[in-house]
Design a protein around this nucleic acid. Structure first.
Lengths: 364, 364
DNA sequence: CTGTTAGCGCATTCAA
DNA sequence: TTGAATGCGCTAACAG
């Protein structure tokens, strides 16, 4: 009961069954050219009878279009990218396009291999959340572009690369969140999920350099943090930013370190979900309470954040919209439109709940 | 700087550039047949020079295999499916297969359309988390199978359909979780995320019927709940199971209703993430506390569950493993192996944290 | 070991 | 309006 693998019926067989020429059958089945109503019916009936299904491969072979778009993200299991991919596939599906999704786990080599796969499979376009930090490491993207394949970046831009992109304004979102913390009275706010550096720089400008060379999202978020501090004339303290690998364990360790400082932060700004949970663990382990002891704002709202005790103030990213817009922009390029390079910036939203309170000292 | 869309270099062009015959070039580029080392080098160099990339479509056209597997799930943005899909793509990628993912949002019509797309694109196999409740509504799956396309079900089985599948033992997982609650002293435990029924049945056997006709996962979880009650001789109370649409709002409303009962439940068993957050909202709104006032166990552990106050006792599903196993099983079928139908059942794990406490009355 | 010859299934001229 | 002939780029016998 397995692989009988009987060759699928072809247009020729339908033609024979209907008693017409191949091209006549092809025209009615392919929905192009002229066919008399009667013949049309006959062909359709014959196709139905023998269970004909068009061979998209053969069609792509002669038309040159596959009606599939390639998507490259860091990790499809990450809720953020899951949302983006959903937005992309929903938007493209309604236009008759399917999506081939590849995860890179932030490894450039994987990303390069992924673009090769997509090129080989002749996708009509690609949407990439690239791990490339500069033009020099984005050669594979230019490669695709030079082959005439429309490409649009999503979530992150590659600095110095003149390409279409759909992103959010990370710097502003971050700046506003930290400003909110400062407005509540905090002067010492920790930054969790910092630069992936082995050692902590001591000078402020080193951090700015790092931010400028880092993944655009991470860099902009750090820059926004710095902006907010500047706005209020608060001194930057290197000790208050996390360094090291970007994972929950490290976030917890760094948050714990900060909380143990003589002049400990009274608020924490976390730039990613795992940074939030890691920080939460650290706060609890230190015997402190969110809100009353240490305020917190994090990136990427989720239904969990709303049921925490206390409910967490979070920055909501329009994941679905990011994907939808990226898909729409890409399809437009595929249709031959939009020649100029454009960067679409979508709005984020600071959802205020109860994790931001005045610092302990200011209360009393 | 847009669609120059210069026709990509073909094998013939490489052959010309290298000064050899088409097939010789094809052999070295395709990695089959014999080619002398010297000629081989020459061809490779020529290919490199003119930027040749194999056309996977043309190759598939003549070999009959696309090296891509189709995946159909309810919603790629759902963390559970995101994990499953990641498992699938990771496992298949290492074997040279890519994945085409389609979401159905639990709508059978979408699922049927999705299988058609996959058939048309000639995927080498499919992995489906079907929304079909019985063989009668799973005709599209049999259709694919009869065309010789390997299919393997994941997460849920279609009762009465003799197909390979990779699932977890929902009934047992559920039974053990509820047993844990009962062991802590609870006699009244609410079941959140029940049958999608408009009205609540009054007889126990109606619930069993519903469970048997429902989505296999949901049905088995309800059945496991019933089993646990039976094991301890606890009477089943229809009022303690949620009915209606399966969404967070409804979960909250139903949990609120139960908590307002004269003989309110002292523990809640939630079969999905949104059921957990909805229930948590209800508990808080009622001015109660998780653990001390009402115990809770839910399905699908996440890093958030561990940082809740108190940390939540949850059932962990091996999402990645489900995907990996499904992919492995499918690839085995594609390789022509495994003729017999097999159902792989993976282990779940009850992660005990602090949301399960003795009921208030039993304390004092 | 290499080159020639046929298809794969469809879309697309071009005649009829 | 319909059908016969070509070609898409590659693999796969086949003969040289």
């Amino acid at each position: 009961m397995t692989n009988e693998r009987a060759a699928p019926p072809t247009i020729s067989e339908v033609a024979a069954e209907a008693g017409v020429g191949r091209s006549t059958a092809a025209r009615t089945l392919g929905g192009y050219g002229y066919v008399s109503p009667e013949v049309r019916e006959r062909v359709l009936a014959a196709a139905e009878r023998i269970g004909y299904r068009t061979n998209a491969l053969a069609r792509s072979m002669s038309t040159g279009v596959t009606h599939t778009i390639g998507v490259i993200v860091a990790d499809i299991a990450n809720p953020f990218f899951g949302g983006v991919v959903r937005g992309i596939s929903d938007a493209s599906r309604t236009r008759g396009f399917d999506t081939l999704v590849l995860s890179t786990y932030e490894k450039l080599a994987e990303e390069i291999a992924a673009t090769d796969v997509l090129i080989d499979k002749r996708v009509d376009g690609m949407i990439i959340a690239s791990a490339a930090l500069d033009p020099a490491s984005a050669d594979h993207i230019l490669q695709a572009r030079s082959r005439g394949i429309p490409v649009i970046l999503v979530d992150r831009v590659v600095r110095g690369l003149h390409l279409d992109a759909v992103v959010i304004d990370n710097r502003t979102a971050s700046r506003e969140a930290v400003a909110r913390l400062i407005a509540a009275g905090h002067r010492r706010v920790g930054f969790v999920w910092g630069p992936p550096l082995a050692e902590r720089p001591s000078r402020r400008r080193d951090f700015i350099d790092v931010a400028a060379r880092n993944l655009s999202t991470d860099g902009e978020r750090l820059q926004g943090y710095l902006d907010a501090l500047d706005d209020e004339g608060i001194a930057f303290d290197p000790e208050l930013v996390m360094v090291g690998p970007k994972d929950e364990e490290r976030a917890e360790a760094e948050a714990t370190r900060m909380l143990g400082l003589a002049d400990a932060p009274t608020a924490m700004f976390c730039t990613e979900t795992d940074a939030v949970t890691g920080t939460l663990r650290a706060i609890r382990a230190a015997g402190l309470h969110v809100g009353s002891d240490v305020s917190l704002i994090g990136f990427d709202d989720s239904s969990w954040a709303a049921v925490m005790e206390p409910p967490l103030t979070m920055i909501e990213q329009p994941m679905l919209a990011l994907g939808e817009r990226a898909a729409e922009a890409l399809l437009e390029m595929i249709d031959g439109g939009a020649d100029s390079v454009r960067v679409h910036t979508l709005e984020t939203r600071l959802i205020e709940r109860a994790s931001v309170q005045p610092p302990p000292a200011a209360r009393a």
